[in-house]
């Protein structure tokens, strides 16, 4: 599956309080959460990010709390994919569990700037910077995580395989 969109670039250690401030955690409605996504970190993002845009960030994206509201807000904002040098552990699980595509690539993060247009192949992990013409390769999605994606997230996965065989 290929995605194409404009890039919103963020730094390292973008925490879940930046993605969705805790003061808005008294709701679980995705649209309402999306309306505050990244508002303290970059107020322009809430106003101008468009359906299909892509977030590119540094290391440890999504660190901090376990709130699934963070990937929910990003997805509901219409962001098609997040590329980062690395992801915080709970955010990583949450993104797969609720179906937000994420990719790890240090080269892509270094070579892609705010406003660039990029194309991402989620299957091959190939990232093409349409603005500069440069190509990058993301770390492949681990096979187990791919199974969760194929089943439509963790709930689909467990519904399909109530008995899980240990490796």
């Amino acid at each position: 599956m290929k995605l194409k969109g404009n890039v919103w670039k963020f730094g390292s250690n973008i925490n879940t309080d930046a993605i969705i401030p805790a003061r808005y955690l008294n709701v679980i409605d995705p649209e309402e959460l999306a309306g505050h996504c990244m508002e303290d970190e970059n107020p322009q993002f809430v106003k101008e990010a468009k359906e299909g845009d892509i977030i590119v960030a540094g290391t440890n994206f999504g660190c901090g709390s376990s709130r699934e509201h963070a990937p929910i807000a990003i997805k509901a904002k219409g962001i098609s994919c997040v590329i980062a040098k690395s992801f915080a552990r709970i955010f990583y699980r949450n993104a797969f569990n609720m179906g937000l595509p994420i990719l790890e690539s240090a080269d892509a993060t270094d070579g892609i700037q705010n406003g660039h247009e990029i194309e991402v192949d989620l299957v091959s992990g190939e990232i093409i910077n349409k603005t500069t013409g440069k190509n990058y390769k993301a770390s492949p999605v681990p096979p187990f995580m791919q199974k969760i994606i194929d089943d439509g997230g963790l709930m689909g996965y467990i519904a399909k395989r109530r008995v899980f065989r240990n490796e």
């Binding site: 990937p71 699980r93 609720m98 963790l154 467990i158």
Partner: peptide, 18 residues
């Protein structure tokens, strides 16, 4: 360990988690 809400749901149903 801390997990997200979908993991909590899966664990509440099955008593297991990956």
């Amino acid at each position: 360990t801390g997990v997200g809400s979908t993991d909590v749901a899966a664990a509440m149903i099955t008593g297991e988690l990956w």
